[in-house]
Structures are given as structure tokens and as C-alpha cells.
Amino acid sequence: MQYAYLITRTDDDTDEDRRVMSRGTQTLADDQDPREFATARLEQNCVEHSYYTGPRRIAYWPHQNDRPIPRTAPANAQHLDG
């Protein structure tokens, strides 16, 4: 199944339009837990953006390939803080 993700900074001192750190899609295996995917992606983002040590959140949700990824998570998204 295809999932989209959106990783954002959650500190209050950042303008809304500058909070997005990463977004994309990934196809998960049938037996892959979406929460495990989100945890791994959030950890990878911490390594890739190690200059930023503040709080961040990943939102993830089932996604259709033909749709663009929004700059804000849809209402049905799951969230994980890191």
C-alpha cells in the first residue's frame, strides 16, 4: 500500500510556511506496519537534518499515487512525535 508522509518542525518560533522538513511517498510491503515505517522515517529525518535539534512530527496516511502531497496533513493522518 502507498503511504504519504509529511515531517514538520513543531517549535512555535518557526513560521508556518517554513515548518515542512520533508515529504514524500513510499510503498509499504503488505506485512509492514505503517507505524514502524513512520518511526524509521522520522529517525532518518533526524540524521539527515541533524542541524535541527528541536521537536518534529511525522504525519502519515494511505495515499494514491496520482495525487499531490499536501503541505498540511489530512484529517485522516496518523501522527508520531519525535
Results as ranks from 00 to 15, higher is better:
residue 1 M to F: 01
residue 2 Q to H: 04
residue 2 Q to I: 02
residue 3 Y to P: 00
residue 4 A to P: 01
residue 6 L to M: 08
residue 7 I to M: 09
residue 7 I to G: 11
residue 7 I to C: 08
residue 9 R to F: 15
residue 10 T to F: 11
residue 11 D to K: 03
residue 13 D to L: 08
residue 13 D to Q: 06
residue 14 T to L: 07
residue 14 T to Q: 08
residue 15 D to A: 04
residue 15 D to M: 00
residue 15 D to H: 01
residue 15 D to N: 00
residue 16 E to D: 13
residue 17 D to L: 09
residue 18 R to H: 11
residue 18 R to G: 06
residue 18 R to W: 09
residue 18 R to C: 13
residue 19 R to P: 06
residue 19 R to C: 03
residue 20 V to W: 06
residue 22 S to E: 13
residue 23 R to I: 08
residue 26 Q to A: 10
residue 27 T to P: 02
residue 27 T to W: 02
residue 28 L to H: 03
residue 28 L to K: 04
residue 28 L to P: 02
residue 29 A to M: 08
residue 29 A to C: 05
residue 29 A to H: 04
residue 31 D to T: 11
residue 32 Q to N: 10
residue 32 Q to L: 09
residue 33 D to K: 14
residue 33 D to H: 15
residue 34 P to H: 04
residue 34 P to Q: 00
residue 35 R to Q: 15
residue 36 E to P: 13
residue 38 A to P: 10
residue 38 A to I: 12
residue 38 A to H: 12
residue 38 A to E: 08
residue 39 T to S: 14
residue 39 T to W: 06
residue 40 A to T: 12
residue 40 A to M: 06
residue 41 R to Q: 15
residue 42 L to D: 14
residue 42 L to R: 09
residue 45 N to R: 00
residue 45 N to C: 13
residue 45 N to M: 03
residue 46 C to D: 10
residue 46 C to H: 08
residue 48 E to A: 11
residue 48 E to N: 12
residue 49 H to C: 11
residue 49 H to S: 13
residue 49 H to I: 07
residue 50 S to V: 07
residue 50 S to E: 12
residue 50 S to A: 13
residue 51 Y to L: 05
residue 51 Y to R: 07
residue 53 T to G: 14
residue 54 G to Y: 07
residue 54 G to D: 09
residue 57 R to A: 15
residue 58 I to V: 10
residue 59 A to L: 00
residue 60 Y to T: 05
residue 60 Y to R: 00
residue 61 W to C: 07
residue 62 P to T: 08
residue 62 P to W: 01
residue 64 Q to S: 11
residue 65 N to K: 09
residue 66 D to H: 14
residue 66 D to A: 12
residue 66 D to Y: 14
residue 66 D to L: 06
residue 67 R to H: 07
residue 68 P to H: 00
residue 69 I to N: 15
residue 69 I to M: 11
residue 70 P to Q: 03
residue 71 R to G: 15
residue 72 T to S: 13
residue 77 A to P: 02
residue 77 A to L: 01
residue 78 Q to E: 08
residue 78 Q to I: 05
residue 78 Q to S: 14
residue 80 L to E: 10
residue 80 L to S: 12
residue 80 L to Y: 12
residue 81 D to F: 03
residue 82 G to N: 06
residue 82 G to A: 11
